[in-house]
């Protein structure tokens, strides 16, 4: 039963994440934190962090992590199969159509108009993660803010946006920063 649920949840993640790994993050959160009680908010953030820091598609990383946690190795296999099955069917079909007609414009136009929605979902996932970092589930107020978290975020954001640093490097530096600030007792 649990295996079927894992399979179906990740089937939805595989089917509706359009536009790469970042698009999968809001779907993974929705399925594993909001709809099913598989991960806590903190565990989800750890998963997002680990998935970003390791090679491989975020959805596959997420499927393995959640599947293992919920139902062991069979769970990991069921979830991973769920998340790649829609691609295998749909993209195979597209590949056949492409080979036959070499014409994809209608489909690409429709998928292109999904982009604004996908951007909004990614933005929302990022904001949720930021709020969780700054307030850790407490209500949003100036007195409850984690200043060390805010500083880490601001530094990382600046490094990415202005100086175009490598994201992996930025995340690793934030990890080191978190450790140092934590040992100093301010994080």
């Amino acid at each position: 039963m649990m295996l079927l649920q894992l399979f179906l949840s990740f089937l939805q993640i595989g089917m509706f994440s359009i536009g790469g790994g970042y698009a999968a993050i809001p779907l993974i959160r929705s399925q594993t934190v909001e709809i099913h009680p598989w991960l806590t908010e903190t565990q989800f953030m750890d998963l997002a962090t680990i998935a970003e820091m390791t090679p491989g598609p975020i959805a596959v990383n997420g499927a393995t992590f959640v599947g293992l946690k919920v139902a062991g190795l069979p769970g990991a296999l069921a979830a991973t199969l769920g998340c790649i099955l829609p691609s295998m069917i749909l993209v195979s079909l597209l590949s056949w159509i492409y080979r036959r007609y070499r014409e994809m414009s209608a489909l690409q136009n429709v998928l292109g108009s999904l982009r604004p929605a996908v951007v909004a979902l990614i933005l929302s996932a990022g904001l949720n993660m930021l709020l969780q970092n700054l307030f850790g589930g407490r209500s949003i107020s100036l007195s409850g803010i984690s200043w060390a978290g805010a500083a880490l975020f601001a530094a990382a954001f600046l490094a990415l946006r202005k100086w175009k640093f490598n994201p992996i490097l930025v995340m690793a530096a934030c990890g080191a920063g978190g450790l140092i600030l934590g040992l100093l007792g301010v994080f």
């Binding site: 969780q132 994201p167 930025v170 530096a173 450790l179 994080f187």
Partner: peptide, 24 residues
């Protein structure tokens, strides 16, 4: 220590995701 590291990194992940969202 691991938890501190992960918490720090997740600030970076939030920055990465928001950076991507802004560009898109």
């Amino acid at each position: 220590y691991v938890a501190l590291c992960l918490r720090g990194m997740s600030c970076g992940v939030a920055a990465v995701i928001l950076d991507v969202a802004l560009s898109l």
